[in-house]
Every structure is written in C-alpha cells, then in structure tokens.
Design a protein around this nucleic acid. Structure first.
Length: 772
DNA sequence: CAGTGAGCGAGCTTCCGCTTGACTT
C-alpha cells in the first residue's frame, strides 16, 4: 500500500500525475465536487445563520467509499484540488466527507501539470484556507437562495416548472434586450460611391471609395452627375507602417468563439470534442480562464518555431488575463506536446486540435509587419475626395500559421491588397462609379459563442458553466437557436460609366437572414420583464460583479460570510414576499380590429403558448383562436399576419366521406383526413392546396405505409408488428417501439426471437432520468 | 404528435459549479 494518497479533481489529471510521482504515491480523483447542499428543498437555514445542510452527492457515494478505503491506509493525504475558490472548497468537503485526520492531511496546489511544478508543490504544502472556503459557501448559498426563492415565484405568477437564477436570468435578459434593440431599430440610409479609375501607364484599374457619404438620393445623384465630366487627380500618397500582434492562447471562452466562427461548432460540441482531446492526452485542461502558458510550453514553442520557420519568427511572450473574474487555476488550453502538429482522432477532433495547435504556436511568434498605403484622389470642383487603400504584409510573422476571426464581418483576412505604382499629381481617368443605397444595420443577434463572450465580459458564469447555461435557457424555452430567412427590400443604385453614361436603377436584395442565432421566445420576454420589474438587483448586469467583490473580501478575511449573506438576503426576501402578493404576470396585446366584422383581435400567451384571438371572451359566441407560427412574437405580430393565421385550418372538401383539412402544426404544414396526418411537402402551400393534391398526398402516404409493413404476429392477445422506420426496421407493440439490434435480418425473425429482443431491449423511458 | 385557451387541485418543478460518462436523436 502506497504511503501517500494524492487527490485531484480530474481522473485524466490523476493518471498523468501518477507517472511523475512514482511508486510511493497513489493518485486518485474526486471527480469534481463530492458534497453539495442537499438536493431537496432549500437546505439553508436562514433563521440560523444560514447554516447549510450538505450531503454527499448521489453520484459520488462510490467515489467517497473508495477514497475512504485508500485514506485509511495512507500515511499522508495530499489534497491537490484546483487552486481557486471551488477547488479549496472541494478539499474542505473531502476532509469532512472522508473524516480526514488533520495531522496527516496536507493541501498542495499547482497550476500546470509538469514534473517540476508538482515536485515544488509537494515541497510547499499548506493548510486549507478557510476564508476561501467560506467565500465558496457564500457563493453556493447565495445561488441556492436566489434560484430556489425566485423559481417558485415564477411557478405561481407565470407558469409551472420555470426557473430563474443569478446566471441564466441575466443571460436571457441579454438576448431579450438585444431583440428589442433590433425590433426598434430604424435603419439609416446613405449613399457611398465606389469608383474604379484608369491609369496612364498601366492597364490595371485603381479601386477607390468616396471618403464622404450622402444621406439622400438627390445629393448622391447630383454628385454622380458631376462625376461624369469631372477631372481626377492624385492629391497625396501616405504610407504608414503597422503591425499586428498574435492573440493570446485559448481559454474556454475564446476557444468556443473561434471554433464557432472558424469551424461552425456549437458551444457544447466544442466542449465535447475538447474533453475527448483532453482525455486522450492531446491537450491541457479545457475549462480554464487563464491565458498563461507553462515555461515548458513556451520553450517548446520557441524551439519548434526556430526549427520550422527560423529564428526571426520566434517571439516568446506571456499574456495576461483581461477578465477580472478570472481565477487562473489552470494553464491556457494548449497541445500537451507541441511537436505533434497532427494527432489521431475523428475528423472534428483533428480540426479542433489543429485550431488549438495553431493558436498556441502563433501566440509565440513575431508580430506581423504591415504597410498601409492611403491614396487621396480629388474630384475637380468638389470638396469630396476618393480614397484608395493598399495593404502589404512586409513580414508575415505569426500570420504564417494563424489569424483570429472576428464576429463583425466576413472580410477579416488582411491579405495583400496591392496598389499599382502611383505618383502624386497623376491624373486619372474614370472607368466606373457605382453608388448604391446602404442601410445601417441593427446590432447583431447573439450566437451561442457571442453570448458566452458577453457573459465572460460581465464576469457572469464560469468556464465549466458556459455550455450548460446555454442549454438551460433553451431547455426552458426562454430562448431558441434558429436560422431564419431574410426579407427582401428595394434599394436604389446609380452607375456612371464613360460609355453608357449615367443610369438610375431600382434593385432588390435580401437582408436580415440569420444562421444559428439566439432568439427570445414570448415566455422568455415575459419572464425577463417580470423579473426586472420586481427584482432589479438580481437582474442587474453588475450584480454578479458586485457580489464577486464581496466574495473576494470574504476570501481575504475582511468580512464574514454569513454577514455578507445577511446583507443581501434581508431585502431580497422581502421583495419575494411582496411579489407573492403582486398580480399574475400576463402578456396580452390588442393588435387591431377585424376589417370586416369589426371584432377585436388580441395576441396572448396561454397555457399552450402564444396565440391570437378573434372576438371577446365574454361574448356569447366562442372566440376564434389560432397559434402563432415559429418566429412570430406577441410583441411584434401585425394585423395582416394575424388575419393570415385565422385562415387556417382550411376545409378542402370530402374524401371517402371524411373531411380533409389543411393546417400548419409544430412540424410544419399538414393535411388531415380521418385523424391521420400527412405532411405537406415544401413545394405545396397549405393556404393554396386543393382537394385533389391533398388526396394524392394521402394516397401516397398510404402506399408508403404499406411498404413499411414487414411482418405481424399475435402474442397473448396483442399484435406485434415488424415495421420499416426512418432508422431501419423496428418492433412495434401497441404504442411502444423496440429497437432491433444491428445486423439482424428483420424479415426472417420468429416470434420467439422477437420476444427475446423485446426483453433485451426495453423501451427507453420518456422524460429523462427518473429520480428515486 | 399536430384539435385546446374554464376551473379545481394534488403533486411536482428550481439554483451554480466542480467532474465524467450514459444516454438518445
């Protein structure tokens, strides 16, 4: 039995460290937190100094059992959890849960998994920092109080099963407010002429853009008319050196952003892949807020760059974190072995690794040196000037391997834009002017990764919670991630060429198309409004930052954790009591009147979601209802859109003595006949479809269903069918489906074989994990 | 599965941060 037991948080880390430490050390993992506030109820005694009730988490019982056994026989137990608030608390909870003897327990910390770092840590043990632990308890208890007191208010005042919390509610608020900025946005129009000039000594054309812009069509037209006969001359040429510095190595947040922009990965996909890379030993820990690289890594990068690209490409640097909330318990995300430019793995794992490798190497490379040339071109008898810009990369430096993307625009790569040789006072000829109407753009909707970036800037959430938070707000239906088609609009354009003269055109473009963006739902907007009205403090974007400040004070021993909670809870709880007496939150808007009947039309949020209502509820006649379509909001739906909704369902006529209707449901347009549903394909329209096409669809569906049938058996009075489904053959008994194992030939299965399969492949339960 | 939109009421829902798998689609 080993003399020493070392406990870390992650099993992959344990494996690595064990190799460094040798036979006298057993290294095990706690798998994160082992104890938490008891699962049911508040488990915080607010009457009694916020006494927390902790319990060993259900999934950690076994871990604790194993660790207890090992601890009993060890001479020294080294608690090597992460060096941050949560890590310190894990160590303390381990002491409590394992009932460790303080005299044989030591606390050690290291930020990087290298042999010198670990050896040094072993030589410098300390005691558990109780102040830091208390800061964590304050954080934990505050989050429980906020979440478990706010959520029930929502159940009563809005709808059951909703949730609110310090992090998720602010995340939703960001999306709601951004949407409202977009709704209220009035685009400003402008006209900015772009020209191409001919040169005397060269056949290449010189592209240039007017520095000024016009804010109405008449001014733009007057300018373009003038340009037909104007003289053009180079007024001056300015050459400015510039440089570009590589971005810092990846943190969780920047990795998520770049993987989203460059590879199109969702935040959770990035994390799943990174976890795989980490477990395979390819990269360092992937949940980190640090941009720090170990000395070992910096040296390895230097050697590699000198070797690969030459000495002048190498530039060792260490980056400092901008984020104030960073706790920096780990290194930045980097390849474990930089010499491995390629690894084995799935296609996406390789792509993510490649991104990490390039970003890390580039961060240790020289600045790129650029040269920006700016040429001003005067227009005779006008004050406006055209400008041509050229960009030349004089020395590519880090750009040789990597260039960071931005959210704003597609044109991010500063490739060379070469200008032909030019001289001051040189006269130019006009080849073409295109002056098109431009519309200013509203702020962009958040992508998942852009939301993570914003949350990090506000200090809200941690690397381990960004991905879960994004999935929570979607699970609660506060937010949907969607792609939406844009709409069309007209724009004016004036073109001038020497040959064809001046032409005025009216053209169309699509705008506002969105891909994988976050949109708020009606319920998300309602909950946000309700919470901001009653709980301004918690919903404030600075709430987390200010409580973090107080946690820091506790960690430094300047304040007592219960005292801090007392200060918060008093006013918070009285707000809760107050709100319990407040009115139910509801969302209702009168859109207008029906143009023929004069009945009022409302948009409302009901039990089953948002809908429009035609007529008053109090009338003797029942009002007519229709559900809102995906993408429509109570806040923005218009009268014509509402009228359109009432046109469905349409009765198309009778087929086989049963009525045929067309409507749009959750899964898109459908035709219904004899309580059977048939999807309407994209090329047909539920508003237009006639009885004949609908009958064809029904007949087609029947034929498909007939092909679906493979076999049928009777067993104990029940019918068991073998059917062809979307994912191959399956067994159907009543309403339950059973999977058939791969490689089984469904056509020849006997009843006995089928019963055996049904027995071995029980149907999955609905609604996720059932709790005991 | 996609019709619903009144009311009653039992029993339930919920937080954030650490970690992995075990799941489905």
């Amino acid at each position: 039995m080993a003399k020493n037991l070392v406990i870390v948080e992650s099993p992959a880390k344990a494996k690595t460290i064990e190799k460094f430490l040798g036979a006298d050390y057993t290294v095990r993992s706690s798998y994160g937190h082992v104890r938490d506030l008891a699962k049911d109820g508040m488990s915080v005694d607010v009457e009694n100094n916020f006494e927390p009730k902790y319990e060993i988490s259900a999934d950690k019982k076994k871990v604790i059992y194993e660790l207890k056994k090992l601890a009993k026989d060890a001479e020294i137990i080294w608690l090597a959890t992460d060096e941050d608030r949560e890590g310190e608390a894990i160590s303390w909870h381990l002491v409590e849960a394992l009932k460790l003897d303080e005299s044989k327990t030591k606390r050690i910390v290291f930020h990087e998994i290298t042999k010198p770092a670990i050896t040094k840590a072993i030589q410098n043990p300390r005691k558990i920092d109780r102040n830091l632990v208390n800061a964590q308890q304050a954080r934990r208890v505050l989050d429980r109080l906020v979440g478990f007191e706010l959520s029930p208010v929502l159940w009563k005042k809005v709808r059951p099963s909703l949730s609110a919390g310090r992090v998720q509610s602010v995340a939703v608020r960001l999306i709601v407010e951004r949407e409202r900025e977009i709704i209220g946005f009035e685009p400003e129009i402008s006209f900015k002429p772009k020209a191409k000039f001919t040169l005397q000594n060269s056949s290449t054309l010189l592209p240039a853009e007017l520095v000024q812009k016009f804010d109405n069509y008449q001014e733009a037209l007057a300018f373009c008319k003038h340009c037909q006969t104007a003289q053009y001359q180079i007024e001056n040429i300015e050459v400015k050196p510039g440089k570009k510095t590589p971005a810092a190595p990846f943190t969780t947040s920047t990795l998520q952003q770049e993987a989203s922009r460059k590879l199109g990965f969702s935040v959770s996909k990035t994390m799943t892949l990174a976890q795989k890379l980490y477990e395979a030993g390819h990269i360092t820990y992937m949940r980190t807020d640090s941009v720090n690289l170990s000395e070992l890594a910096i040296n390895a990068a230097y050697g590699l760059i000198v070797n690969e690209f030459g000495e002048k490409y190498a530039h060792s640097r260490n980056f400092t974190t901008k984020s104030k909330s960073a706790q920096e318990a780990h290194e930045a995300i980097r390849p474990t072995y930089l010499q491995n430019a390629k690894i084995d793995g799935s296609y996406d794992e390789k792509r993510l690794y490649d991104l990490i490798w390039k970003r890390t190497v580039a961060s240790q490379m020289a600045d790129a040196e650029l040269e920006k040339t700016s040429v001003k071109i005067s227009v005779s008898n006008r004050v406006e000037v055209f400008q041509a810009t050229g960009n030349v990369v004089k020395f590519e430096g880090f750009l040789k391997v990597y260039n960071e993307s931005t959210d704003d625009d597609d044109e991010t790569n500063p490739g060379d834009i070469l200008l032909p040789p030019l001289a001051v006072n040189e006269t130019l000829g006009l080849d073409e002017i295109i002056c098109r109407e431009r519309f200013s753009r509203p702020p962009a909707r958040y992508t998942e990764a852009a939301l993570v970036k914003k949350l990090e800037e506000l200090g809200i959430g941690r690397p381990s919670t960004y991905a879960p938070t994004i999935s929570t707000v979607q699970k609660r239906n506060y937010v949907v991630k969607e792609s939406r088609d844009g709409s069309e609009r007209n724009y004016k354009q004036i073109t001038v060429t020497p040959k064809t003269g001046l032409a005025q055109l009216e053209l169309t473009e699509t705008f506002g198309a969105e891909k994988n963006k976050l949109f708020p739902s009606d319920i998300g907007m309602l909950v946000t409004d309700f919470l901001t009205e009653h709980f301004e403090t918690v919903m404030d974007y600075n709430f987390t930052a200010s409580v973090e400040n107080e946690f820091d004070n506790i960690a430094q021993g300047l304040n007592q954790w219960q005292a801090m909670l007392e200060g918060f809870y008093g006013s918070f709880h009285s707000k809760i009591e107050e709100t319990t007496k407040a009115d139910r939150a509801k969302q209702e808007r009168q859109i207008g009147m029906h143009p023929e009947s004069g009945e009022p039309i409302y948009a409302r949020l009901g039990k089953y979601g948002p809908f429009v209502q035609l007529g008053e509820t109090s009338d003797d006649i029942k009002p007519k209802y229709a559900k809102l379509r995906a993408g429509q909001l109570i806040e923005t739906i218009t009268l014509p859109e509402a009228l359109e909704l009432f046109k469905l369902p349409r009765q198309l006529g009778n087929f086989e003595d049963k009525v045929v209707t067309a409507d749009i449901g959750r899964f898109g347009p459908y035709v219904r006949h004899n309580s059977k549903f048939v999807s309407i394909p994209k090329d047909l329209d539920p508003y237009e479809i006639d009885l004949e096409s609908a009958i064809n669809l029904i007949k087609q569906k029947r034929e498909d269903d007939a092909n679906k049938f493979i076999n049928e058996f009777e067993h104990q009075g029940k019918t068991i069918q073998i059917l062809n489904g979307r994912w191959g053959p399956y067994i159907k008994e009543g309403k339950t489906n059973y999977k058939i194992p791969k490689g089984t030939i469904a056509e020849t299965l006997t009843l006995d074989e089928i019963l055996k399969i049904m027995d071995e492949n029980p149907p999955k339960k609905k609604g996720g994990r059932s709790k005991k």
